[in-house]
Design a protein around this nucleic acid. Structure first.
Length: 474
RNA sequence: GGUGGAGUGGCCGAGAGGCGAGGCACAGGACUGCAAAUCCUGCUACACGGGUUCAAAUCCCGUCUCCACCUCCA
């Protein structure tokens, strides 16, 4: 039995995972700033850490998973002007978009999903402590800054030197002692929302909310802090700075997911709407998009291409088809079983691509068993495939992806069987023109006919319309 | 300028001193009335130049190209 080892951004090495508290794991993931609808890059992060959480759970840990929502920030205020809505309505609108996307892609809900605006009290307490320790200061304009030169250590995660940083663009209008000092709290400008503090009316800076929420739910020390690569600096550095300055131990391990890129470049919102999750769900099923995003290692860039996505969809349908055929042959849906091979792959810093090779191997064995009527072998192989898919959140039988069977499906089955019996009689009298014409007509409707030694079987070409629940607002 | 990451066959994508990961595509074969599905076989790649070693895609030195972060970011 292999032991779980995970990469740590702080040490830049993969090391055995040892939880702070035996049998329990606490994870904090920097979630969305809800100022725009999510594209597939955003949900890749959610999916990667969903898999981490699922794998820890399968490994027997009790997982506490906190994923925050930043619902107040400059961009949200800017969007409120553009959309002519209150800022809180903007935040809620896009929060729902994220929730919809996570749900459609089978990202399990976190244990708790705290919002920044719900934790102003904790933020004020944290600032008070930092000011009392002489590490933060309120210059009197309503801002509160953290004085980075006062820190005993800083920039350990990104391994940079303070003096090597390019001069900050934001100077704080001369109120900062050093241009690299960062804002814990920002004074409200005319017409902006604010909360009252001892230092004036204002709102949270970008980094403070995470430290406050982490401490509220996970305490002084917790196991894993996650987020996208770009958060290493400044966001996570500043979280470390303000949290450790008040004496919290903070994260024991840092994990960062890589980008989805297009044409070799980081995805940006200026690329248009085509890669928004909602738009992609018009063309692909959630499980297929998830499969595509899962197939690359979480620390590798995933270069998006339509071709690669389509190939990924085909390969997923092949697996799905195998499981369905196995189920038909066995008369029951095989229970998920996690193989040793797959366990070893996952334990090696969540090496999903290696796990995929084991799925292929199990499929090959399973298909052989299927043609040679080896029911025991088939059941074992199908269980192994399903177990692996289950860990990846891509189990076709997961109720999260909806049940294709319903009353109409029964009627459809009857109709197609009727057509198939016509075709069989045509074949029996060697009238292949007629039999092929029936097959072609069905194919036009998206119904695929395959002749097997047990007789013909039919399946539908998967379309998004088969899973309409995924497109509904929740 | 500073800090990281990447370059692998037609394509995608693992691996990190020796034994061809895997998938897709393609070609041949088996099966089939024909297909489809499936199986079998084939396709010996690691940016470039040096070096270390019995042995290098993997380690070392150098070079090139691309990407990210350096206070908006998943």
């Amino acid at each position: 039995m292999s032991a779980l080892a995970l990469y740590d951004t702080l040490t830049r090495t993969t090391s055995p995972f040892v939880p702070l508290k035996s049998g329990e794991v606490s994870i904090y993931l920097c979630g969305a700033t809800v100022q725009a609808p999510p594209h597939i890059g955003h949900v890749r992060s959610g999916i990667n850490f969903d898999i981490l959480s699922r794998w820890l759970t399968k490994s027997g840990y009790k997982v506490t998973f906190i994923r925050n929502i930043t619902d107040i920030d400059d961009k949200i205020l800017a969007k409120a002007v553009v959309e002519d809505m209150p800022w809180w309505a903007v935040a809620m609108k896009y929060e729902r978009e994220f929730t919809f996307a996570y749900s459609a892609l089978n990202v399990l809900p976190p244990t708790y999903e705290p919002r920044a605006t719900g934790h102003i009290t904790q933020m004020i307490e944290l600032m008070s402590d930092l000011i009392a320790k002489g590490i933060a200061y309120a210059p009197g304009n309503g801002d509160v800054y953290l004085e980075v030169r006062k820190l005993s250590s800083y920039l350990t995660l990104s391994r940079q030197k303070l003096d090597d940083l390019l001069p900050a663009g934001e100077t704080g209008d001369g109120f900062k002692k050093d241009p690299r000092d960062f804002a814990l709290w920002k004074a409200a400008k005319e017409g902006e929302p604010f909360w009252t503090t001892p230092w004036g009316n204002g709102r949270p800076g970008w980094h403070l909310e995470c430290s406050a929420m982490i401490h509220a739910y996970l305490g002084d020390a917790f196991d894993i802090h996650g987020g996208g690569l770009d958060l290493i600096f400044p966001h996570h550095e500043n979280e470390i700075a303000q949290s450790q300055a008040v004496g919290w131990k903070f994260a024991a391990r840092w994990m960062h997911n890589a980008w989805v890129t297009t044409s070799g470049e980081k995805m940006s919102k200026s690329l248009g709407n085509s890669l928004l999750v909602r738009a992609m769900l018009e063309r692909y099923r959630g499980i297929e998009i998830r499969w595509y995003l899962v197939s690359a290692h979480y620390r590798s860039m995933l270069e998006f291409s339509e071709t690669a996505l389509n190939e990924s969809v085909v390969s997923f349908r092949r697996i799905e088809n195998f499981l369905h055929r196995a189920g038909e042959k066995l008369g029951y849906i095989p229970e998920p079983v996690i193989s040793q091979n797959f366990t070893d792959a996952m334990n090696d810093d969540l090496a999903v691509p290696q796990g995929l090779a084991h799925i292929s191997e199990a499929m090959r064995i399973g298909n052989l068993a299927l043609t040679s009527d080896d029911v025991v072998g088939l059941s074992a192989a199908a269980s192994e495939v399903r177990g692996a898919l289950d860990v990846l959140g891509c189990d076709p039988f997961d109720p999260a992806f909806g049940k294709p069977e319903n009353d109409q499906a029964e009627a459809l089955d009857g109709l197609i069987k009727l057509a198939l019996s016509q075709r069989q009689s045509a074949r029996a009298r060697q009238d292949f023109a007629a039999s092929d014409s029936i097959r072609d007509s069905l194919a036009t409707l998206g119904i695929i006919i395959e002749d097997t030694p047990q007789g013909p079987r039919w399946s539908l070409t998967p379309t998004t319309s088969r899973t309409p629940h995924q497109r509904e607002e929740r």
